[in-house]
Write a protein that binds this DNA or RNA. Structure first.
Lengths: 357, 357
DNA sequence: CTGAAAGCGCTTACAG
DNA sequence: CTGAAAGCGCTTACAG
């Protein structure tokens, strides 16, 4: 009954697994197994251990657990930016899901920078994360090597492999086969194509594609736009406005002004992200250019405020919260040694037609 | 020279402190002390240890270190929301500073909810954080008790104590005195008052204060607004529009419409946050209400896009990135056992006058 | 199904 | 200033 804890010179006041074992009258090994829900423990003992541990207010020490098991309860999530709400939504959804399952989320911001990504990955790997969420499928060879070598389960966010390679069933049944890369997202190319087709269906003929940042997913949207225009023989390279600078409302305004000044007879502009499109809408107000009458404007992602713009912005709604949650769920399966039934999960997208087009 | 590591059944491939000790021909204790920059180590040995450790690519195991020292390299940061860019800026600046000093940032989102905050705090405390950053000075008794009992150094963000109690020097010199609460921010009340005075100086007479969320800092801005109006005998309780709902662009639009419909002769509206004010500006466009001619609109925080609005938004620029960085710096001092020279750091604010007023 | 024992990789009194 | 030893609080082969 009494804890009877040996008072050594380095004792912390903490209630330990040993205390629980003594109080429950079993060995520490049994407590450890019972607490982690390992089978092969007498159900009666499990119940006793759980009740005693609860009564004592026992909380396992994550550091001790990590040291002994060589695995922490950390999950690393690597995102490009915090200034695009898209990634904040992703982060929040993933974190909520992971936390409910008892995992700690550690966030790293790569700034779309390969060497920052590698550096962050190295740092995180030293903490032996239990799992990993990483934005995109495009990574440096070093990053890929580090991830593969680490043996840490990983799910990629917001993107899917270009072509869907269905895994042959016999390979899957072997169990040893790698079904990866695991990813949850949607087809960026298709989304770019769909928005372009929407504009075409409204009778637009000269549709500009205006983009900043130029990360791989933006470039896929560009491909979709090209494909749709080429199918109608409306493709013209001068309709491409690609700016590698960081995306922002202000840049959207600047690009809009440039496009309206230099391009002839443009009747629609498809921006690769809503912040650019919102900035363009505000610049149009400033410049007295009527949207959509003089020029239609479309965006991408349906970010906060796009429905509040004047006129409200036509855009592509992307399932980022769902991606965050589903990816976390998939990672949870992987961390528990299970095999996700769908290694590549396509969550789709929706064209949201508002008054800016 | 040769590692000569005992090959036991649980060996991980990892290079350990022991390996470094062998290779450097010193004891593990010395390596440990040298690596952590403890004084009382022969400089020559320090150099040797550092060089060997570097050559071997040794990386200390955070879990082992945490277990042995009862202190991790985690710093917890608790913020109310991720949907207000204010807090994202805070987070990013703090994380950057902390990371450069070798600390991991763990973020918790409280949603302005007392019990969520307590729950997060409890979870975080089990990880023995080395330090803590927490938004605001207003916390439940439970939260305060948990924090005090934990003995984890803590810096509060974005707020300062109502009255500045200068610490008597003799108390400070005693060393044992508590100079806390440590905080970095600015005077919310003063900022609310300053913006109101700015509007008054432009000849506005009936100035509405429109707020959502109603967290403690918003209520302080309200106090500042009241003070400024009362000083001019212009205070009228019907000018207060307080909505406890979450702040958003859409809500700003709704509130603006309500205010314009029900209040008489309002000539200015001071919104407690830029997202509300931006929403109001957009609603004004929709409704055909001229800003600032029919009504002036002001916001708070100078968030992304406020300078891009039409008309550009008059607002209060708050030093959130600086707060994040300075708070992290102060926490770093505390974690190293030093005493910050200024326990309460006031970073001020600026009135940014644009065309919406 | 259960337990005794060793071990994870560090830090830190303690003794010199 | 340096080192041998104990200890942090868990997990996990191994033996029964």
């Amino acid at each position: 009954m009494s804890p009877n804890r040996p008072k050594n010179h380095r004792s912390t006041g903490r209630i330990t697994l040993n205390d629980v074992a003594h109080a429950a009258g079993v060995s520490p090994s049994t407590v450890s197994r019972a607490l982690r829900g390992e089978r092969a423990v007498d159900p009666e003992l499990v119940e006793r251990v759980l009740s005693v541990s609860d009564k004592l207010g026992y909380v396992p020490d994550p550091a001790a657990r990590a040291l002994a098991s060589q695995r922490s309860d950390h999950v690393t999530i690597l995102i490009p930016l915090l200034s695009n709400t898209l990634f904040v939504d992703l982060l929040e959804a993933a974190q909520r899901t992971l936390r409910a399952a008892g995992f700690q989320t550690l966030m790293g911001v790569t700034h779309y920078n390969t060497s920052e990504e590698e550096q962050l990955l190295r740092e995180q790997l030293h903490h032996r994360p239990a799992g990993m969420l990483i934005t995109g499928l495009d990574h440096s060879p070093t990053t890929q090597k580090l991830m593969a070598r680490s043996n840490v389960p990983c799910v990629h966010l917001m993107d899917l492999p270009e072509v869907n390679h269905p895994i042959p069933p016999d390979v899957l049944e072997g169990g040893a086969a790698d079904a990866g890369p695991y990813c949850v997202g949607f087809r960026q190319t298709d989304a770019g194509e769909a928005m372009t087709q929407h504009l075409l269906s409204q009778g637009k003929q000269r549709i500009v594609f205006a983009a900043a940042q130029l990360d791989p997913r933006v470039m896929q949207r560009l491909q979709g736009w090209r494909k749709a225009l080429k199918a109608q023989n409306l493709y013209d390279p001068t309709l491409e406005w690609l700016n590698p600078a960081a995306s922002s409302l202000a840049l959207g305004g600047v690009m809009f002004e440039q496009i309206m000044k230099q391009s002839q007879a443009v009747d629609a502009i498809f921006f690769c992200n809503d912040d650019l499109a919102q900035g363009a809408l505000l610049a149009a107000l400033r410049l007295g250019i009527a949207v959509p009458h003089q020029v239609a404007i479309a965006g991408f992602n349906d970010l906060t405020g796009s429905d509040q713009m004047w006129p409200p912005l036509t855009t592509v709604r992307t399932p980022r919260a769902q991606v965050g949650e589903a990816a976390a769920q998939m990672l949870l399966q992987l961390m528990h040694g299970e095999t996700p039934d769908q290694p590549q999960l396509d969550l789709g997208f929706h064209i949201i037609a508002r008054q800016s087009t």
